[in-house]
Design a binder for these strands. Structure first.
Lengths: 122, 122, 122, 122
DNA sequence: GTGGTCTAGACCACT
DNA sequence: GTGGTCTAGACCACG
C-alpha cells in the first residue's frame, strides 16, 4: 500500500502524514521505531523532500513522532494515542450532533447522507 | 429557553452565538430583525458586555448578522444559510468517516458512542 | 429602464434597492417624494410583495428613505447622500489599494483586471 | 518595519493581523513556522495581550494560522491563499465599478482620487 | 511557559 | 442611546 493517491483531494503532505498516523495508531509501527529518512522517502514516493518534511513537521506538531537532529524521526509513545484519537473523533461527532439538533436537523439523516457517495464498508 | 448553561464546556460567547445562529437558521428570527443591544443582553444574561460583543462579532464574521453603528445589530439574509450549513456538516462527517477507516475503527460504532451519554432523540 | 435583471447574480431585493438608491443619489427622486406602494410596485415588477418590502427595509436601514405607517415610503434628505456615497467608494478603493500593497500586488493591474470581462464605458 | 501605526485609522488588532497576513501571503513566513507568543509580542509592541490575542483569533478564523494550545500559533498551508485573495480584491473592484456606474460617477475618476493623498508607487 | 476566557471599567464615534 | 476598541488584571487548562 502506497500512501499517495493523486485522485485524493487532500494535499500530498496530508496524505503522507495520514498514512503514518494510521501505521502508528494501528500499532504497525512501534514506539521509538525509526521512520524512513526524509530524503529516502521522497525518493521512494517520487516527490519533493520539502513535501515529506512538511508531513513530518505536522506529525511532530500533533504528537505522533519526535525528531532527533542528525539522527532521524522516531515514533512517540503510541499506546495512548489510539484511544485518545478515538475520543477526539467521538467528541467531534457529538459536536456535530448538537449543532444538528440546534438547527432542527436529524443527526441520523446527516449520517446517512455522509455514507452515500463513498465506498462504504464500515 | 436561556442561552447560557454553565455546565456546557463551551465558552459563554460561543453559546450565545450558537443560540442566535439557531434562531436565525430555523427562521425564528427574520431577515433585518433587530437583535437585542449589546448592553441590554449583557444585563439580561448577567454577563459582561465584552462577552456579548464577542458573540456578535463572531456572528457578523460568519455572515449571520450585520451591524449598523449607533443603530444595532440586525439579521442578515438567511435564506441560503441553512442548506449551506447542512452541506458543511455532512462534509465533516465524511472526513471523520474516512479517518476512522484509516485507523481501523468502525464509523458506525463511533456514531453509537456519540449518541450515548446525551439526551438522544435524533 | 426596469430594475430587475435575472442575469444579475444579486438577489432581486438588492437590485430593487440599488435601483432606488441610484434614483435618489442622482437627484431624479427628490426629498420627501413618495415611492410607489409596496403592493403596486410588486405588481408592476411581477414579484412578491415580501421582496419589495425587504428592499424598502434595506433602503430605510441605510438611510435613503423613511417610512410613515399607513402612508407609504418617502425619500430622505438626499442632498448630502451623493458626496457621502462617493467618499465611501473612494475609501473602499483606498482600502483595496493598501491591501494590494501589503501583498506585493500592483493596484493598477488589479484595476485593469476589474475592467476586463465587463461592458466598459467608464 | 513595525506593524503598529497610531496614525492609521484601523484598530490596532487589525493592523497586527494585516501585518502577519502580508508576511504569510508573501511567503516570508513559511508553513508551520511559529509566530511569536501572544505575551511576548504584546511586550514588544507595548500593547495589551488581549489585543494581540484578538489579532491572532482573526488570523485563525480567516484560515491563515492554526493554534496548538500550550505550544503556540503556527502558519497554515498558505500556498493557495494568495491567488484566492487576489480574486477577492478584483471582485470587490468590480462591485465598486458597477455601483459607480449606477450613480453616474466615473470609476476612473474615483480610482484617481483614491491614489491622491497617499504615498503612491503602485 | 503557552493559549484562551472573562470581568470591570474606560474612551471614542456615530446618531 | 448604540456599537467598537482598548487596558488592566484575573483565572483556567494544557504540557
Amino acid at each position: 500500500m502506497k500512501p499517495i493517491d493523486y485522485q485524493d483531494p487532500r494535499p500530498i503532505y496530508e496524505q503522507i502524514a495520514a498514512y503514518y498516523k494510521s501505521l502508528i495508531l494501528r500499532g504497525i509501527m512501534e514506539t521509538d521505531e525509526k521512520l524512513p529518512s526524509v530524503r529516502s522517502l521522497a525518493m521512494e514516493l517520487s516527490t519533493n523532500p520539502n513535501t515529506v518534511q512538511r508531513a513530518f513537521t505536522e506529525l511532530e506538531h500533533e504528537g505522533y513522532i519526535y525528531s532527533v537532529s542528525g539522527r532521524g524521526n522516531f515514533v512517540k509513545d503510541a499506546s495512548s494515542l489510539l484511544t485518545k484519537k478515538q475520543d477526539e473523533l467521538v467528541g467531534e461527532l457529538q459536536t456535530i450532533r448538537r449543532e444538528a439538533g440546534e438547527l432542527g436537523l436529524s443527526f441520523d439523516e446527516l449520517v446517512r447522507q455522509a455514507q452515500n457517495g463513498t465506498d462504504g464498508q464500515n
